[in-house]
Amino acid sequence: MSASPLLVVEGLTKHFGRTPHLVRAVEDVGFHVAPGEVLGLVGESGSGKSTIGRLVLRLIDPTSGTIRFAGEDISKRPERQLKALRRNAQMVFQDPYASLNPRLRVRDIIGEALDAHRLAGGARRTERIGELLETVGLPATHMTRFPHEFSGGQRQRIGIARALAVEPKLIIADEPVSALDVSVQAQVLNLMQDLRQRFGLTMLFISHDLDVVELMCDRIAVLYLGRIMEIGSTDDVVSRPRHPYTRALLAASPKADPDAPKIRRMLTGDIPSPMAPPSGCVFRTRCPMATEECARSIPQLRSAGEDHQFACHYDMAHGERPAAA
């Protein structure tokens, strides 16, 4: 990657609560996102995707690790000095109902962003709100309405307009289409792609739907219990997965094609509690090829080619099969 990355995360860790109930939500996560790039974060519920998003925006404080945005370490900045981050990084939320204040009109929801950074006042403010609504495909006249007067897809557009109001460089989209119907989902995905191109947006795209991630992202990071299992270009991760969990995830996602092979290989068991993650490799309780070594030591990310890494003791592609498998 030639341009220096817009976002660099290293050793990011977040624990919630205290020892008997300590939740290891994010554990030693590192990645970088180049300007204009879209990095997908996939993983099942509780894998720490949203927590990473909130950490990057400094809505919560990291337990340890660094977050470098546009070259500056923002991981320990006090709230007062985050004005620039708030202006340059924004979030789009999963729940189109809960993410808009039901008591405010659309005009005030979007206008608030303009006011917070003194971006537009008076007549210019109204004009700008109208522009933003039109950018996301809503008529400017809808600005006097309340959120409940819109459908889920339209609300999600309002949420996107709000995020765009401050003209951010980075957008963290936390499952922006998960709550939407397929036909509406398609509209919002296309809108996000348009906006990405138009404004040269960099994105952290969080989703549990591999098809959506594959469509939207240049690179993908696969998370399990707060750790990165595999990270690489979309093509590498989807077509040449190296980590057993990535393979399992791909195999478990039903394909909308009746001729595709049915789900046969399946992960057994439940996702362990993040309060008591397994020792060694966190995936070992469900991994079909786990060995004693997996319980003993934590596998570090290892390279599987240019910009493709995975965290497993064994590299199946190179015949490193564990004896037990």
Partner: peptide
């Protein structure tokens, strides 16, 4: 055709899904 897996590459090289207008 709304399914992301059925996205087609547009002339600008981007993969776009078809969507159903309106609701």
């Amino acid at each position: 055709n709304c399914l992301p897996a059925r996205a087609r590459r547009g002339e600008d090289g981007r993969r776009v899904v078809q969507s159903i207008p309106g609701s």
